[in-house]
Design a protein around this nucleic acid. Structure first.
Lengths: 236, 236
DNA sequence: CGCTTTGTTGAACGGGTTCAATTCGCGTGG
DNA sequence: CCACGCGAATTGAACCCGTTCAACAAAGCG
């Protein structure tokens, strides 16, 4: 793959132009790609990591399991996303990450990463900017779980995912391929899968969006955006 | 104030020992402290910031207002916390921050911060570690809003706040001073203030914790921790 | 072919909200 | 000094969004 088409470069480069030197540093991070089948564990809660991953192809989920047995998905990761960067700087990972589909990642050790940061401060700033976006996504989901009803949560999440996938050319205003099940949607949005099912039906019947057969289709993008007050500014 | 007693140094130094040089860099960040009365806005959603703040004394709240008028508090900040660091690297702040009490902060420009990071990589790592903890707090709250009931959310949040305040010597296992109202607790935990009130009464009657007169008292710390499965590992 | 995973629908229940009213403490002005 | 207003806490009652339990259909897969 041509380096400039890498989803990582596309994400980091959303706001700045890279120099030749910066490109070469990024290129080094693309060596040694690794593949995982669906359902693989990249790392788990409490694990001490000395490396992080770039997600190049495929989808992953970051989640926590509660003692009572229920589960909260913290984030869904798509190509261009960072996996486990926090746990490099923290003592240990505070959640688990598994692949949802066939997945291609590039592993980067803490050392390589910190060296790159020292060497090219602009690159460090680009990374910090992207980390900020990740946290903004987390904040926006917190708002959803705290103050939005089921319909708003679902629409918001699927619109957000669409916006993120557009960055890496995997979605349009028409919709996108989506490997998530209704159960996973429930664990992301703090709802039961039964209720997810009912609300999805209602959204479909209203002609707003269709979540079916591994595809999300925006049947009326503008009305959907308007009806849940979706705003992309937080995505950077 | 002696620099080594600064809540910022106490937080950053939770895991590493600073050199003389690193101390001097941190000391420079303590110049020009600013004071704010309760209810001041440090910055608001959408604002473009070129500087961030360390919270030295007092409490603050970070929140988002929804178009429907309801509010979600993203985090409560206590001495030693960072305010607005993300918005330095992102395009704009994605939430607003106001003081809850009389407050003392130190302002640090993006430039000074980035220079410090280049100059002393260990300091940069300490900051990244602390940012990680902030994000872990966010993740844990997401889990609360998604999968815990009102009693668990309240207990978890007040225990977490206690653990954070212990780091800066402002709490013990007995309890701590807390300027939050029941309304604010509601906006943090995605509940109504009426329900907060009822659950607080129930917790008090069970002899687990008392939230009254600006104080949180852990009437039976161990039983409280056990009954909601509180675990501090995510706090780093 | 049976088994598991995912999706679908109905009915009853319940945790938490909403609306409404009351109390208490406190600062402010008459 | 008291009346007033205001924000925070408190309590009751009705309601409702979302859960839980239960049953069944459809699709994929060894």
């Amino acid at each position: 793959m041509e380096i400039s088409n890498s989803p990582l470069v596309r994400r980091l480069g959303a706001h700045i132009e890279f120099s030749e030197h910066e490109f070469s540093v990024l290129k080094k991070m693309h060596l040694n790609p690794r593949h995982f089948p669906p359902g693989s564990n990249l790392f788990h809660e409490g694990q001490i990591n000395h490396s992080a991953f770039f997600l190049i192809e495929g989808w992953a989920e970051a989640y926590k399991i509660l003692p009572c047995g229920s589960r909260q998905i913290v984030n869904i990761n798509v190509p261009g996303d960072f996996l486990g960067f926090r746990s490099v700087f923290a003592h240990a990972a505070d959640y688990s990450v598994s692949s949802l589909t066939e997945m291609k990642v590039c592993e980067v050790s803490a050392k390589v990463l910190l060296n790159a940061f020292e060497e090219t401060p602009r690159l460090a700033a680009a990374f910090l900017g992207s980390f900020s976006t990740d946290e903004a996504i987390l904040v926006e989901r917190l708002v959803s779980l705290g103050r939005r009803n089921a319909m708003e949560r679902i629409a918001h999440f699927l619109l957000e995912l669409g916006a993120r996938l557009k960055l890496v050319r995997k979605a349009t205003d028409e919709g996108y391929e989506c490997p998530l099940s209704q159960y996973q949607l429930a664990d992301i949005l703090g709802l039961s899968s039964i209720h997810i099912n009912r609300v999805l039906r209602s959204l479909r019947e209203k002609g707003l969006l269709t979540f079916q057969d591994g595809k999300v289709t925006f049947d009326d993008y503008n009305q959907l955006v308007a009806s849940v007050n979706f705003n992309t500014v937080y995505l950077g």
